[in-house]
Design a protein around this nucleic acid. Structure first.
Lengths: 226, 226
DNA sequence: AACGATATGTCGTCAGTATGTCATGAGATA
DNA sequence: TATCTCATGACATACTGACGACATATCGTT
């Protein structure tokens, strides 16, 4: 049940960059539909039901405003406008049509992503499931379930929070000290070796994906995509 | 996902020097946008979304304060002011407008860089990845990973901290004594020759980039850009 | 409360790796 | 040439992390 996202933008590079970012970062959270001209966008927007739309204003064919208005007649899917150099007028017009947020080019894709997530969360009443993926491992922060290659696996609490910490910092080497601080918190009257052992048990639980948890001798552990 | 940085400064030499320093030192960490007059800066500052701004106060067109005020209406990106006149008045005015730090000319570029990183780290909640580059070698202090020509290399703990010490003092010749003190710390009951040996092993690990680790006969070692 | 099941921390051992030491020789320096 | 400095290879040892086995702690069920 990924969220359906429509991105409308006439610059192919930007369209691809944004689309890729959502697919990469969201890892299964989004189903992305794209359009690069107004008429195509209008057809898709009124045809399918989307959870979020990102619309460029200046488009060949219908404008972003037209698309927004057409959609608003049907339902109230959240809309983010993208606009080239910030004339306040067109932004105001955007708010009249009922957009929920806007960004002025050039913008940071990460920023756009953050806004999208926030908007979606508000629209769904905080019910957005946030899945994080790392290679074959998928961790769902909301349901607290972990999958390896789409097969759900059994994992206990300590292992879960350790895995979460690893994945949230994927790529980075995490020292035992920082792992203890973040995963064990105040219960700091524990032996360093618990980390080793929990890592070991985590690897057992992860089965085929065990290899993704790398040991960096003398420094700590890290998780990688393969 | 580099951090977007806007630098506004009307002296072309200084503008280039600062911009270059960030690009060199940061190695992919920054995406730098520059402007040399107030109006251009105002357009860019309000147009794009930046993670950090460095603003000169005295500018043709709008002043640094104007730019800061305009930005603060939209979001709260951290701002560092550069000012020629060290008069307390204009500095105070800077803080009223809501700048996060300031520097009085002439200043050291390295100093500015350090302030920028600190500010960015605070704004992002400590999530800034710090990459340091030296020639073909890239060392990431956060992930503790080392790359040679964008290829990740295997490196052990002692070699890692030795390389870090070399790179943080790139250009300088480091004596065995100072290397021992910084990399080995308290374990000072070791032979001087461990340094030689660790340097040797480091060179092996660095492969093609081995040549960047220079021997300075009679004095010690240093790392260079080529 | 009593019981069992599971989760979690601790310990000892072992193998692999990292690291320190030494001997030797090449090259620089005087 | 004599001497000093560093590079290199070989070796010894210390260290680190993996693993198995065990001890508690926690939790749910009866």
């Amino acid at each position: 049940m990924p969220y359906r996202l429509l991105i409308v933008e006439d610059s192919p590079e930007l369209l691809e960059a944004v689309s890729d970012f959502f697919l990469e970062e969201g890892a299964g959270l989004w189903e992305v539909v794209t359009a690069s001209d107004g008429n195509d966008a209008l057809a898709k927007a009124t045809g399918g039901s989307f959870d979020l739309m990102i619309l460029d204003i200046m488009l060949p064919g219908a404008s972003g405003f037209d698309i927004c208005k057409a959609v608003r007649r049907k339902d109230d899917c959240p809309v983010i406008f993208i606009t080239a150099l910030g004339s306040e007028n067109s932004i105001l017009k955007g708010y009249e049509t009922g957009c929920d947020d806007y960004l002025v080019k050039p913008f940071s894709t990460r920023h756009l992503y953050a806004k999208s997530l926030a908007l979606l969360k508000r629209a769904k009443g905080g019910q957005v499931s946030e899945e994080i993926r790392c290679g074959d491992i998928t961790l769902n922060k909301k349901t607290m379930l972990v999958k390896v290659k789409d097969r759900e696996i059994q994992i206990n609490s300590r292992e879960y929070f350790l895995l979460l910490f690893l994945i949230e910092n994927k790529g980075s080497v995490l020292t035992r000290k920082s792992i203890l601080e973040h995963v064990w918190g105040d219960d700091l009257d524990v032996n360093d070796r618990v980390v080793d052992n929990t890592i070991r048990r985590l690897r057992e639980s992860l089965a085929e994906a065990a290899g993704q948890v790398k040991t960096v001798i003398g420094r700590g552990y890290r998780i990688s995509e393969d």
